Simulated scan of single mutants.
Amino acid sequence: MGYLLLILGIALWIGGHLFKRLVPAKRAAMGDKGKGLVAVALLAAIVLMVIGYRSAALVTVWVPPSFMIHISNLLVLIGFWFFALSGVAGTMSARVRHKQLTGVKSWAVGHLLVNGDLASILLFGGMLFWAVLSVILINKAEPTWERPANPSVKNDAIAFGVALVLYGIVALIHTWLGYYPFPVGGA
């Protein structure tokens, strides 16, 4: 049952996000009421993914080498940094169009490197698929991009500081849930 809920959650997440890209006229016809409906669908998707992931039977597909933990942690931190960059005009903001989707891709790849079980591959692979597909669809629909004005290295540093704080909070939550994100014994 866990895998079914996980897959339904991923499908609902992807469908909810791509709804306006794939059928823009139908989404526009729904008006503001459609925003609420999509928000409820996305919240339901998160709940389904969490419940499905946590209850899915362990099926090991591959065993990642321990050194991947370091690479994974770096990619997750970079993912948080790109998310933070979406709110400030840093020099990286002026170079990367889809900062939040780039953050999701970095986060997903980082998790795929250290989780070789089927549920993780479905969850993080599904999120990676969604982020890549979203970038393609957005770029196709809106081929031009206006870069942020007045990018600042200072804002890059501020965004990185925000990313470090968020990373620390998420690491604490992972630890609380029983998933210690840092190598033990210098692995």
Rank of each mutant, 00 (worst) to 15 (best):
L58I: 12
K140S: 02
L128H: 01
R21M: 09
D156Q: 04
V88E: 09
A187V: 15
M127F: 14
M1F: 13
I7W: 03
A56V: 09
I10V: 15
L43R: 06
N139P: 08
A45W: 03
I121A: 09
S152A: 07
V104L: 08
L123N: 09
T91L: 11
L18W: 11
P64H: 08
L37T: 02
K99Q: 07
F124W: 03
I173A: 11
G186Y: 14
F160N: 07
I7Y: 08
L137P: 02
H111W: 10
H111L: 10
V40K: 09
Q100N: 13
K20V: 02
E146H: 06
L113W: 10
V104N: 00
R97H: 04
S134L: 05
V135L: 00
V184H: 08
L48P: 01
V38Q: 04
V50S: 07
G36V: 01
T102C: 03
I78H: 10
L113M: 13
G178V: 02
S66N: 12
Y180A: 05
R21G: 00
R97C: 01
G15K: 11
H70G: 11
A11Q: 10
Y3Q: 09
P64L: 07
T102L: 11
P151S: 09
W81G: 13
V47I: 01
T102V: 02
N73D: 10
A141M: 05
V76W: 09
A56Q: 10
F124L: 02
W13Y: 12
L22G: 03
